[in-house]
């Protein structure tokens, strides 16, 4: 057997995370079969689960705190069995964890999946490239054509659409935790099903689009810690334009003027949005475009 085959079989045996599989096929081919080799492979399996659990508990801190260590570790183990670990950086593990949770037979899987998605985006925002702030450039807004100016957003800027009011759910569960440290899983389930059971509603919790049950979120990192906030559908569409423009090549940067032209919704007001965005450090700087 080549080294390549041996390594594939050993890794397959570790990632199977099943004791019966260890005693059967994999171990017989990658190593000579004896009980000590099985014990050795179990050492690597325990290490894999412990490391993955530690990494995902950091990335999905809210989910971890809500479901508890035991349930979370079961989710981690099942996730490792289903999804190949293609990432070499533990900090990047888990991009499919939210959708994985959604398809698990656990209570409130859909809301937990939505919370997991928000956790993941916040974690990514905290790892995102730093963006230099230059608030002196805001003065450009006073005396330059809007078609010549572009907005540079804070690190980790992203918008997210969800079918659940995740901010409300998180606030309510946190509030309940503060009032009663021994919150049971069934208590959490009740709160997840009906987040308005508690009085701890954050301000401005009205969903942006109650007809379609869609909620919109802004994620950004003004300093080192990611922030998230529910936004209106109009803000979401406006910010989506800027999010999409980040992938454009240099020289095709979106201008404020052209973004406003693309904003078909009359309810969006940049006059109202701009001071708020500056205050919450969503805008890092304003830049002049090379060409109109």
């Amino acid at each position: 057997m080549s080294i390549k085959q041996q390594q594939t079989q050993m890794l397959s045996a570790i990632f199977s995370l099943e004791e019966q599989k260890l005693t059967m096929t994999n171990i017989h081919t990658c190593c000579s079969p004896n009980q000590n080799h099985i014990a050795g492979l179990r050492v690597y399996q325990r290490s894999l689960i412990a490391n993955a659990n530690r990494a995902l508990a950091i990335t999905f801190a809210t989910v971890h705190s809500f479901v508890g260590e035991r349930v979370f570790m079961q989710l981690v183990k099942a996730y490792l069995q289903k999804h190949a670990k293609a990432q070499y950086d533990w900090g990047e593990l888990g991009c499919e964890f939210p959708s994985f949770i959604r398809h698990q037979a656990i209570d409130n899987n859909a809301i937990l999946a939505a919370i997991a998605q928000l956790d993941f985006e916040c974690h990514q925002a905290e790892r995102a490239e730093n963006v230099d702030k230059d608030l002196s450039t805001l003065s450009l807004l006073n005396d330059h054509d809007a078609y010549l100016l572009s907005i540079n957003f804070a690190s980790g800027f992203k918008v997210l659409k969800s079918n659940h009011p995740v901010d409300l759910v998180i606030e309510n569960i946190k509030s309940a935790h503060e009032k009663n440290n021994k919150l049971t899983l069934s208590d959490i389930n009740q709160l997840l099903i009906n987040p308005e059971l508690t009085n701890a509603k954050p301000a401005n919790t009205k969903p942006a689009n109650t007809k379609t049950n869609e909620y919109y979120y802004l994620i950004w990192r003004p300093n080192f810690q990611a922030q998230y906030q529910q936004i209106t559908q109009q803000e979401y569409h406006w910010l989506t334009l800027w999010q999409s423009s980040k992938s454009l090549a240099d020289g095709q940067q979106l201008s404020i003027g052209s973004a406003l032209d693309k904003t078909t919704n009359d309810n969006f007001s940049i006059i109202e949005w701009l001071p708020k965005a500056i205050e919450q450090q969503l805008i890092s700087s304003i830049s002049i475009q090379a060409t109109k």
Partner: peptide, 19 residues
Amino acid sequence: SWAEVSGTSTHAGDLLPVP
């Protein structure tokens, strides 16, 4: 640490021995 498992490049997340 790297090997192909089920057709996918997979990282062990560990330091695995070689002969």
